[in-house]
């Protein structure tokens, strides 16, 4: 069975705890299937096209060189197109799926409930894999910029990371929405804003496992955060400060390439790096609803929450 902890070498922040049996038997098989589909329909064909093109253009007989060049061109191609694909194709579809899952009713009929759980987990796995794949560009551009930056600048006190601040993203939206709830004086409006906030940002998770509580299931944390936000500086104002810092860094940079080239590069890097938090937000946006349905199924089967995620999906849906 695929164990997610084997992928920890990609990023040690992921999969720190052993995954639950329910996650391993419900979502992971679908995630594995979606990875297979992605590799067969996107990764392999692109590498093959670029490798074969190199093979014909360079007339090199040693096969590894065109394959290596093909792989390199595949990476550059994906770096270039993934942001567009994410914003114009993937995200609109994923948002429709999130909407569809969130509108699912908790059916009285347990068979219908099981069917809805399976349908929503399929949609979740589809999104996780494709949105995860966009990480190739959001990480790739930063690594590329880290390498290129010292080669195209001179005598700079600035680090490459000084150009990667002040980007509007989901972190800012999340903090601003929370701040607005905390600082709303009118009780009725506060309750409405709080509900909107929870509906929009409440499904944020700690890691990929349906056994983990989502943000909105942690009332103590939300209460502490609301208290900290009361009277605090508005996140949008803090963001403006970071934006000014970025602009002054940009004004002081000493370059050995034309400024127009540098600014276009920085714009592309910022657009892709900003996707990182965006992706993290959308990837697990269905988890709260899926957990709600699973907990309801557990309740009907008289299985406590502490035991529910130790069950396999096959056992649970019997």
């Amino acid at each position: 069975m695929l164990e997610l902890r084997h992928f920890r070498s990609l990023n040690p922040e992921w999969f720190r705890k052993p995954q639950s049996k329910l996650e391993a038997t419900l979502r992971i098989p679908l995630v594995s299937k979606e990875i297979g589909i992605m590799v067969l329909t996107r990764v392999f064909p692109l590498i093959a096209i670029f490798s074969l093109t190199m093979r014909f253009l360079l007339t090199i007989t040693f096969p590894m060189i065109p394959i290596a060049l093909g792989f390199f061109l595949y990476l550059l191609f994906e770096f270039w197109v993934l942001e567009h694909w994410y914003k114009n194709n993937l995200l609109p579809k994923h948002k429709r799926n999130i909407d569809c899952v969130n509108k699912m009713e908790i059916s009285i009929d347990s068979k219908a409930l099981i069917s809805n759980i399976e349908k929503s987990v399929r949609m979740s796995a589809y999104g996780i894999v494709r949105i995860g794949y966009v990480g190739l560009a959001s990480w790739g551009w930063e690594i590329l910029f880290k390498i290129i930056y010292p080669l195209i600048t001179k005598d700079n006190d600035n680090l490459y990371t000084d150009f990667l601040v002040g980007m509007p993203n989901k972190v800012l939206e999340f903090n601003q929405a929370l701040w607005e709830v905390a600082n709303e004086k009118d009780d009725k409006k506060k309750a409405m804003k709080n509900q909107d906030f929870l509906n929009k940002f409440g499904s944020v998770v700690d890691d990929m496992d349906l056994s983990y509580k989502t943000f909105r299931e942690k009332p103590n944390a939300i209460e502490s955060l609301l208290n900290l936000n009361k009277g605090a500086i508005e996140p949008n104002i803090d963001h403006q400060k970071m934006l000014s810092r970025y602009q002054s860094t940009l004004n002081s940079v000493k370059l050995i390439v034309p400024f127009s080239i540098f600014i276009n590069l920085v714009a592309k890097v910022r657009a892709n790096v900003a996707l990182r938090e965006d992706r993290r937000f959308y990837e697990f946006a269905m988890d709260y609803k899926i957990r709600t349905m699973l907990l309801e199924l557990g309740k009907r089967k008289k299985i406590a929450e502490s035991e529910l995620f130790n069950e396999s999906w096959e056992e649970l849906k019997k």
Binding site: P12, E13, R16, K170, V171, F174, N175, L178, V204, V205, D206, D207, F215, K218, N220, A221, E223, S224, L225, L228, N229, A232, P235, D238, E277, R280, F281
Partner: peptide, 26 residues
């Protein structure tokens, strides 16, 4: 869930952070 002991300006020491930690980090 144990954020109640955290005060503005403290240095946050933790195992690792995730999007759930974002609102405390500011």
């Amino acid at each position: 869930e144990n954020l109640d002991k955290f005060e503005k300006g403290d240095i946050l020491v933790t195992v690792s952070t995730s999007p759930q930690w974002t609102p405390i980090m500011r």
